[in-house]
Simulated scan of single mutants.
Amino acid sequence: MEYQFIRDPLSGFRARFNDEHALIGRWLSEELDHNSVRVLISQLEALSFQKEELILTGKEIRATFTPQEALFESHALFHESEDVMQYQEDALALDESGMMAICGYEDFMPMLKEWAEFIRAK
């Protein structure tokens, strides 16, 4: 997983990821409250000892954390097929690429801790 953290004077902090994990970058930059990153890290460390999952539903992205991995899904994936079918006559279709990203904790947790340090060092 390749990523880069950027300080943008106009939009604040941004995370840019490779295409396969771009949704994670959007989630970090747009959905995750900067004040709750440390709390999330603690919750995820505790999750590894449990059989439950943690679901965070944002404005555009749902993050599901299981004891094994982090799954990010765009809300657009959950539209009913009838909703999408109405655009078929206009030759429009839902492009599902980039609408889901999966990451194991061996990559995700170090990255999340780096993000926490990056946004803390304002």
Rank of each mutant, 00 (worst) to 15 (best):
residue 1 M to Q: 00
residue 1 M to G: 11
residue 2 E to M: 08
residue 8 D to E: 11
residue 8 D to P: 13
residue 9 P to K: 12
residue 12 G to H: 01
residue 14 R to V: 07
residue 15 A to R: 01
residue 15 A to C: 09
residue 16 R to H: 07
residue 16 R to Y: 05
residue 17 F to P: 03
residue 17 F to C: 15
residue 18 N to Y: 06
residue 19 D to I: 01
residue 19 D to Y: 11
residue 20 E to K: 12
residue 22 A to N: 10
residue 25 G to R: 02
residue 26 R to W: 09
residue 29 S to Q: 03
residue 30 E to V: 11
residue 30 E to Q: 12
residue 31 E to P: 14
residue 31 E to W: 09
residue 32 L to N: 13
residue 33 D to W: 11
residue 34 H to D: 08
residue 35 N to L: 14
residue 35 N to S: 13
residue 39 V to A: 13
residue 39 V to K: 13
residue 40 L to S: 06
residue 43 Q to H: 09
residue 44 L to F: 08
residue 45 E to F: 04
residue 46 A to N: 08
residue 48 S to I: 11
residue 49 F to V: 02
residue 50 Q to G: 09
residue 50 Q to Y: 14
residue 50 Q to A: 14
residue 54 L to W: 00
residue 56 L to C: 01
residue 56 L to H: 11
residue 59 K to D: 15
residue 59 K to G: 08
residue 60 E to S: 14
residue 61 I to R: 03
residue 62 R to L: 00
residue 63 A to W: 12
residue 63 A to Q: 10
residue 65 F to E: 00
residue 67 P to A: 08
residue 71 L to I: 12
residue 71 L to A: 09
residue 72 F to G: 08
residue 77 L to H: 03
residue 78 F to H: 08
residue 79 H to Y: 12
residue 80 E to N: 11
residue 80 E to K: 11
residue 80 E to T: 04
residue 81 S to L: 05
residue 82 E to K: 12
residue 82 E to H: 06
residue 85 M to D: 14
residue 88 Q to R: 13
residue 88 Q to A: 10
residue 90 D to L: 15
residue 91 A to T: 04
residue 92 L to N: 02
residue 93 A to I: 02
residue 93 A to V: 05
residue 93 A to N: 00
residue 97 S to K: 10
residue 98 G to D: 10
residue 98 G to F: 01
residue 99 M to A: 10
residue 100 M to R: 11
residue 102 I to S: 01
residue 102 I to P: 00
residue 103 C to G: 01
residue 104 G to M: 04
residue 107 D to G: 05
residue 108 F to C: 04
residue 108 F to Q: 00
residue 109 M to K: 07
residue 109 M to E: 11
residue 109 M to Y: 09
residue 109 M to N: 07
residue 110 P to L: 10
residue 110 P to K: 03
residue 111 M to S: 03
residue 111 M to H: 05
residue 111 M to K: 10
residue 112 L to G: 07
residue 112 L to D: 01
residue 113 K to R: 14
residue 113 K to Q: 05
residue 114 E to L: 14
residue 117 E to K: 00
residue 118 F to R: 04
residue 120 R to D: 15
residue 120 R to K: 05
residue 120 R to M: 03
